[in-house]
Amino acid sequence: MTRAVSLYELAHARSGDKGNRLNIAVVCREPRFFEPLRERLTETFVARVFRERRPTAVKRYELPKLHAFNFVLDDVLDGGVNGSLGLDGHGKTLSFLLLSAEIEMPAGLLSLAEEPAPELMSGGSR
């Protein structure tokens, strides 16, 4: 059984740009999310998330020791920061687009992740 969750619940992201190329690093919040995301967070999935920006290529690099992935998307920045009339042609903000995408994950894996950490529940210092 699976359940759709936003990628934000499973990972952090950091992005940047070089010319018209977008780079997004996706780092799992917990190591146990790496294998299920390896199966689901594919180049095809990411290309579909960015379909309105029409990437000409999407390449995924795996970083298993860091429980992370790096995606490189070509031609999604309207020509790049210096070549675009867009308000924000930077890649910096586009990681949020990917993190907001919903992805199907095993329900049993998610039930453990839904329990908030005790330090987050305390509401302040001890």
Results as ranks from 00 to 15, higher is better:
Thr42His: 05
Ser15Glu: 07
Glu30Asn: 05
Thr2Pro: 03
Asp78Met: 00
Glu43Gln: 13
Lys92Tyr: 09
Leu87Asp: 04
Ala25Met: 08
Leu10Lys: 13
His90Phe: 05
Leu98Gln: 04
Phe69Met: 10
Leu22Gln: 03
Lys92Val: 13
Ala107Ser: 05
Phe96Trp: 07
Arg60Thr: 01
Glu114Pro: 02
Ala117Thr: 01
His67Asp: 02
Thr56Lys: 14
Gly80Trp: 02
Arg126Cys: 09
Ile24Pro: 10
Val26Gly: 05
Ala107Gln: 06
Leu98Thr: 01
Pro31Glu: 05
Phe34Met: 01
Asn82Ala: 14
Met121Leu: 15
Ser122Asn: 10
Ala25Leu: 08
Ser6Gln: 15
Gly91Asn: 00
Gly79Arg: 01
Ser95Cys: 06
Ala113Gln: 03
Val76Ile: 07
Ser95Arg: 12
Ile103Arg: 05
Leu22Asp: 00
Leu94His: 04
Pro55Gln: 10
Pro118Leu: 11
Arg14Pro: 05
Tyr8Phe: 14
Glu35Gly: 01
Val5Arg: 06
Ala57Met: 11
Gly89Ala: 15
Val26Met: 08
Leu73Cys: 04
Phe69Tyr: 13
Arg21Phe: 10
Glu62Gly: 09
Pro31Gln: 05
Gly86Asp: 07
Met105Lys: 02
Thr93Leu: 02
Leu112Asp: 14
Glu115Met: 07
Cys28Val: 04
Gly89Asp: 07
Thr2His: 13
Ser15Lys: 07
Arg53Pro: 02
Ser125Arg: 11
Met1Ser: 14
Glu114Val: 00
Gly89Pro: 15
Leu110Asp: 02
Tyr61Ile: 12
Met105Ala: 03
Val5Leu: 11
Ala47Met: 06
Ser122Met: 12
Glu43Val: 06
Glu62Asp: 15
Asn23Ala: 12
Ala4Pro: 11
Glu30Ala: 09
Met121Val: 14
Gly16Cys: 10
Gly16Phe: 09
Arg14Phe: 12
Arg21His: 11
Gly86Asn: 11
Arg54Cys: 08
Ala117Glu: 14
Asp88Leu: 09
Glu104Pro: 01
Glu35Ser: 10
Leu37Gln: 03
Ala68Met: 05
Gly79Asp: 04
Glu102Arg: 15
Arg14Leu: 14
Ala11Cys: 15
Ala13Asn: 11
Arg21Trp: 10
Ala25His: 01
Val46Phe: 08
Asp88Met: 08
Ser111Lys: 13
Gly16Arg: 13
Arg29Tyr: 00
Leu99Asn: 00
Leu109Gly: 03
Arg29Glu: 04
Ala101Val: 09
Ala101Trp: 06
Phe96Tyr: 08
Phe45Val: 11
Glu119Thr: 02
Ala107Val: 05
Ala25Ile: 10
Lys65Ile: 06
Phe96Ser: 06
Arg60Trp: 03
Phe45Tyr: 15
Ala11Ser: 14
His12Gln: 11
Gly108Ser: 11
Gly86Val: 04
Lys65Phe: 11
Leu97Thr: 15
Ala68Lys: 04
Glu30Gln: 14
Glu39Gly: 07
Arg32Gly: 00
Thr42Ser: 15
Val27Tyr: 08
Val5Asp: 00
Thr42Gly: 02
Ala68Phe: 04
Arg48Asp: 13
His12Val: 02
Arg14Gly: 14
Leu110Pro: 00
Asp75Ala: 13
Thr93Trp: 01
Leu37Glu: 00
Val72Asp: 06
Tyr61Gln: 15
Thr44Ile: 10
Pro36Ser: 00
Thr42Glu: 04
Glu35Met: 08
Asn20Gln: 11
His12Cys: 05
Glu43Asp: 12
Leu87Ser: 09
Met105Trp: 00
Met1Asn: 13
Leu112His: 11
